[in-house]
Nucleic acid binder design. Structure first.
Lengths: 227, 227
DNA sequence: TGAAAGGAATGTTAATTAAGGTTAATGAGT
DNA sequence: ACTCATTAACCTTAATTAACATTCCTTTCA
């Protein structure tokens, strides 16, 4: 699946060039030119990264970054702006930005920085070898074993993958769709109900530790909170 | 424990300034001026981040980055250099760098970028959102829980986000539109009525503490006043 | 000028629809 | 025969839509 970029820019000319240039590198780009439309676009497309101009009609880029951070604390955000002052850059990082690029910039540089951020924020693939701590439990992925004290429960394949996905994303929202794709390979209706069944099972297994919770976010997915 | 920075720079004058400046921000800095000594210093100190000049006697910064990447694929590396060409920057990222700063740079910018990288590569423990005090209540955003004394009310997703927006903006006016965009992603008529419904719900939940009030500002939005 | 009328915005409660939770029954593979 | 995965049936909760009530701003006319 292509990497999705949410690109917010109000200068149509520059915007068009950048958009096309990114698209030629196999990115899936959604360009928005009014700050007020950004959250709608965000919710609609669920981007992998955001590139924000700072000076915009409607809402400025800093405000947008703050709002995005409320909903998504990990989305990589790059500011692209004509503001060259150090204070502006500092503000950019303060509101949750992860990089700051001064105009005029070269497309090459933007692309390289986009890729760098994507790589840095890739889920640190907790090497499926190592045991994962889950509250008072310990999960051994290579053996599909969930341990607490001296009791061991062997998990089935589907249970194991699901738990691993949750554990890798502790305290973050996880899309239902993402889970379905990773566990079942597709997100058809029946598999969707299947997921419900497996969530119930895991809740049951994990209920001995009351600090662990699988929160439902209706219409979105789940959040696995521990401690 | 202090964050340890491995700083490679051969200009003694600049090096001294930067080192002292970083140390004044509570970093533990080890400065090396010959490329050949870098790996030794690395092994010795086990830094949390590396700041590398590119042009050096002995070995250049790119080579050093490659060597470090062999042993440590995750150490954040920032290049700091007088080379301003885009090709140089690209090369910097190619060899494994994570940021690239052109000289002359401001200390503030370096520090902000160092902190950003440290944060990004921190184990993905994401949004350690803190609990928010709301009058006699306490709100735990991670768990969508509203607590008062020993009673806990679990909030739904929409309730939770809405309350969070209000709580973050205590005693300030909040645009209806802003809320709609952040909770629903758009501000259509139906969602607007939806907001009314959820405001009613929150007022109900919060009515136990009479010092809390959600004031309507007709035509504008709301103000969440506490105490 | 000011009281009344009208209307848009919001409040409240209830009904409806959609999403998910739970448990059990069925099916497929060893 | 056993285990796991899937499907089904029924239940619960959240989100949306609807219906009706209220507030308060604006307009208008005595």
């Amino acid at each position: 699946m292509k990497t999705k970029i949410l690109y917010v820019e109000d200068e149509p000319f520059l915007g068009k060039i950048v958009k096309e240039s990114l698209e030629s590198r196999q990115f899936d780009v959604r360009m928005v030119s009014d700050g007020k439309e950004v959250m709608m676009a965000y919710n609609d497309m669920k981007p992998n990264i955001a590139v924000l101009d700072v000076m915009l009609p409607g809402k400025d880029g800093y405000t947008l970054a703050k709002e995005i951070r409320q909903i998504d604390p990990t989305l990589p955000i790059i500011f692209v702006t004509a503001k060259t002052q150090t204070e502006d850059l500092i503000k950019g990082f303060e509101v949750g930005g992860n990089d700051y690029l001064r105009k005029p910039f070269s497309m090459e540089e933007l692309i390289v920085r986009v890729n760098n951020l994507l790589q840095l924020t890739q889920k640190q693939q907790a090497s499926p070898k190592e045991n994962i701590a889950i509250g008072q439990f310990e999960y051994a992925p290579q053996r599909y074993e969930l341990r607490k004290g001296d009791s061991i429960r062997k998990l089935s394949h589907r249970e194991a993958i699901l738990l691993q996905i949750l554990a890798e994303n502790q305290n973050n929202n996880i899309d239902r769709k993402t889970i379905l794709m990773r566990v079942w390979g597709d997100d058809s209706f029946f598999n969707s109900r299947n997921l419900d069944v497996y969530i119930t099972k895991l809740r049951d297994y994990l209920k001995e530790d009351s600090s662990i919770e699988i929160i439902t976010i209706k219409g979105i997915g789940y959040r696995f909170v521990v401690g």
